[in-house]
Write a protein that binds this DNA or RNA. Structure first.
Lengths: 141, 141
DNA sequence: TGTGCGCTTGACGCTTACGTAAACGTAAAG
DNA sequence: CTTTACGTTTACGTAAGCGTCAAGCGCACA
């Protein structure tokens, strides 16, 4: 049984930027805020798969509307070392909060989707009554 | 058959702020951005149920991480007049975009919830092995 | 040796979404 | 009549999240 060949691939800042469609400035900014910690070869940044994964998590967090500070605490939970009991309890607490937050968001999303569906139905019926030769019966709002 | 007694209740800015737990500044800011248009009695703002509903929608949009500009287009869709065909088509197009956006967010949320569950499980097992008298077997990360 | 490419570090600018006074009006209560 | 409560406008402040230069470095290629 031989060791799994782990490529240990690396990326330049431009490659990462292209892959996730963000600017170099953005990536450097995240590093400045402590969200990314690429290796340095001389002055040049070298990104490993760990950084790449984290960048993905950061951007997903952004899509969800979290602030970079919130994202930092979330992402840091992912690769937290086992640590002592207090740390673990703290982590579990954070998880509870995050989960509550996310579940609220999902409820909000579902409500919004339902209401959008209603608006859409209204639009469709308005359209058909406009296009049909029937006098455009004004539906009660 | 008598008319339904519609209270046509009104609210002061402070009442609305208290109900939704936002500051007066925030409410006035939303008005400034065209999201709310309360009645004026003299210089004083008087909010009707329409404004109250809209404020609720605005805050839900905020929870979802939309910008106020995005929220404006969403909320305005809700009480759009039937209008002409071009308008309706535009509205339907907007709805399609919004829906795609929201469904992406829900996927993001679900992924995040799953991963949080994994982290939680890890924490729990770390905790029990810490508390149990068994030598704290270090699980492979 | 020069030209260009990709990367670096500042540093200032800009927008969003409010916070935070300051200064004033108005109306009821003590 | 003064205080208190509640409202108003004007305006400057601020934190987040980058955009946008400017100036410079190291390396490959001609």
């Amino acid at each position: 049984m031989h060791n799994i060949r782990v490529p240990d691939q690396t990326w330049s800042i431009a490659e990462l930027a292209a892959e996730y469609d963000v600017t170099l400035r953005t990536i450097r900014f995240y590093e400045d805020r402590g969200l990314l910690t690429p290796e340095r070869r001389g002055t040049v940044r070298v990104y490993h798969s760990r950084d790449k994964v984290r960048l993905g998590l950061i951007l997903r967090g952004k899509r969800l509307g979290f602030s970079l500070d919130e994202i930092a605490t979330i992402v840091d939970m992912y690769d937290a070392e086992p640590g002592e009991e207090g740390q673990l309890v703290y982590l579990l607490d954070q998880i509870t909060h995050r989960r509550a937050d996310l579940e609220q968001r999902r409820r909000d999303i579902d409500e919004t989707l339902h209401e959008l569906a209603e608006v859409e139905a209204r639009c469709q019926s308005d359209l058909t009554s406009l296009r049909g030769r029937t006098a455009p019966t004004h539906q009660p709002r």
